[in-house]
Amino acid sequence: MTPVATVRRPVHHDMTRTASSSVPDRRLLVAIHDVSPRSEAAVDALAARLERHLGGPNFAMLVIPDHWRQAPIAGNTAFHARLRNWADMGIEMFLHGWCHRDETPAAHGLAGFKGKHMTAGEGEFLNLPHAQALARMREGKSMLEDILGRPVAGFIAPAWLYGEGALAALDEVGFALAEDHMKVWQPRTGRVLSRGPVVTWASRSPGRIRSSLWFSALARHALPILPTLRVAVHPGDTTVPALLSSIDATLARFVQSHRPSRYASLLA
């Protein structure tokens, strides 16, 4: 197995090594998406990178129970131990769908457009009927909480895409938090806790790489006026040096004005 990330002791509070501690109401929320046995090496590399910028394990991980139906965490005791260790270090653990694959794609309309252009066949919860969305959320939440020995931090749909069935299911399952491209909210009450775009990167094509580099550069100048900044990184980012450089530049800029924080701080 890959060695555990560099911080050894549990951390259950926000840490920072920048002047941003003087503005505690300005939060920086950072997450590693697509955490699964198939992405473990890339997740380790991203976690080490984030720790250097954020002063410790002050970020979240989004866990997929069975990534593309090829990497089930059920029965994988070695990966269970890694998940528990990350959680013990203070990393927030979110449920990130079930398989991260759109198995009910829409052919037409807005849902079809989103499924085709906003993700590469990974909008799992965009078109799921309510009953299927509810079953996957409940089973995933129960499995992950049994592994971690604690509640999950919340639910974030693959590609941040939710259909009506998924949104209705969120209200029933009891997640503390949910997130899409433009906001973080409390599913049980509908209360919006933070607004503003997620800064993220895409590695699947030269065009996507260029557009994400352009947007992140713009975000470094325009977004620090917001009280809460959100950054999301993916295992595929580790394959493109230009994306890693952009991630470094973005985090270096954001920690100057915003304190690395936990999503749960939005509920305080």
Rank of each mutant, 00 (worst) to 15 (best):
L126G: 00
M93Y: 00
F215G: 01
V198N: 01
A31M: 02
G121V: 09
P37T: 15
R9Y: 07
T18E: 07
A157W: 06
F113N: 09
R262V: 12
Q256V: 07
T238F: 06
A168K: 10
M182A: 14
A111R: 11
W86H: 15
A41T: 08
W160D: 04
V63R: 04
W201R: 02
A166T: 00
L54R: 05
R26Q: 03
T228Q: 04
L50W: 06
M182L: 12
T6S: 15
P129K: 11
T228S: 04
E139I: 11
H258R: 07
L144A: 07
W201V: 03
D66N: 15
T2N: 01
R204L: 06
V152A: 10
V63M: 08
S21T: 14
V152K: 08
H108A: 10
L83N: 02
R150D: 07
E122T: 11
R82P: 00
L144N: 00
A106D: 06
V30C: 05
S20A: 15
R259Q: 15
L54V: 09
Y263M: 03
G55E: 04
P187C: 13
A219D: 04
L126Y: 04
G75E: 09
R52I: 11
L110T: 15
G109R: 04
P158A: 14
R8A: 14
F59V: 01
N85G: 08
S246D: 14
A222E: 08
R49S: 11
D171Y: 04
S212N: 09
F59H: 04
V35I: 11
G174L: 13
I73D: 00
R49A: 14
S257D: 05
P260V: 15
A41G: 01
F155V: 12
T6I: 13
R69W: 09
H67E: 14
A78V: 13
L218I: 15
S203Y: 14
P57G: 02
G174R: 10
A5H: 05
M61A: 13
T239R: 01
P224S: 12
H181K: 04
A81H: 06
F175R: 01
H100M: 10
R191Y: 00
I225M: 01
L46P: 03
Q186L: 04
P227Q: 14
R259W: 13
G121A: 07
V23T: 15
L218Q: 14
